[in-house]
Design a binder for these strands. Structure first.
Length: 272
DNA sequence: TTGTGTTTTATTGCCTCC
DNA sequence: GGAGGCAATAAAACACAA
């Protein structure tokens, strides 16, 4: 905290023409003084020159001023300074204050508030990013569900066709020759979905994995529908499809890959 | 002009670090 | 224990619709 910064408490301190002024001491303790309002009725122009503003005597002589906005030039310089470094070392604070004609305390406060504003904006940006990622994920999920339905109905109709053909073929066979019942020999004809995942995998027929409606092993090729969230924009090498680790590889990549971590990823507070 | 919502400046209290 | 950071908050300044 800066010392010697006057504050004005209008709520509790006005007595006729007298104002109570608080003086913030380094330790935070306040000493009070009274100023005759008529003696100190000189008003500083809204925007003073930096030289005037930095003049200690000027401050000492003045009424406690109302809150005053910084000039656009002052703000511009502060913004530029903030861009280079968002924290303020004492030396830079003093230099800036001198340059801007402000109290060092004002510069410090400005940086403090500016950091708070930046943080709020960053939160908003993170929220937007998270939301758009979620929306994309949702739309991918929807399209996968549609594909799944489509493939399922294709399989059903093809199975029906196959069964019909087999029956036809049976009827055309030499009378007396025994033809095994297909649906007794191979469950795939009766219910293709009934094949266990391990069977499919061992026989190499992974393509029918979508058939097993109730089987959680449907997702065996993925660790999870919701791998740890790292937005795709930070991904350098989008080969997640190839290694079968991300169902929604065009949205997320697994956080297990350290090379995907960037400062702007969700949950990180990276200063500009 | 006035009421109201937003932004900016400043204060306070608490916390951490050295 | 002092310095500095942050969150919460107050209050002045500002913007703007009615």
């Amino acid at each position: 905290m800066e010392s010697n910064s006057f504050y004005f408490d209008p709520s509790a301190s006005q007595h006729g023409n007298m104002f109570f002024l608080g003086n913030l001491n380094p330790g935070g303790a306040r000493s009070m003084m009274m100023i005759n309002i008529e003696e100190t009725s000189k008003r500083r122009p809204f925007f003073s020159s930096p030289e005037d503003l930095y003049d200690e005597e000027y401050y000492d002589d003045q009424l406690p001023e109302k809150k005053r906005r910084l000039t656009s030039e002052q703000v511009h310089l502060l913004e530029k300074s903030f861009e280079t470094e968002n924290k303020l070392e004492p030396e830079r604070k003093t230099q800036l204050a001198k340059k801007l004609g402000l109290q060092p305390r004002q510069v410090a406060v400005w940086f403090q508030n500016r950091r708070a504003r930046w943080k709020t904006k960053q939160l908003e940006r993170d929220y937007d990013l998270l939301k758009s990622t979620y929306d994309q994920l949702l739309s991918n999920y929807d399209s996968i569900v549609k594909d799944n339905d489509k493939l399922r109905s294709e399989v059903t109709s093809l199975t029906e066709k196959l069964l019909g053909n087999e029956e036809e073929a049976n009827n055309e066979l030499t009378p007396g020759r025994q033809v095994p019942e297909l649906n007794q020999l191979d469950p795939v004809y009766l219910n293709p979905a009934a094949i266990k995942t391990e069977d499919r995998l061992s026989s190499g027929s992974v393509g029918s994995a979508v058939l097993d409606e109730d089987a959680p092993q449907l997702l065996d090729s993925c660790d999870s529908y919701f791998p740890s969230l790292v937005p795709i924009h930070s991904q350098q090498d989008n080969n997640a499809c190839d290694n079968d680790r991300a169902c929604f590889s065009d949205v997320f990549v697994p956080t297990t890959s350290p090379s995907h971590h960037h400062g702007e990823s969700l949950g990180f507070w990276a200063w500009p």
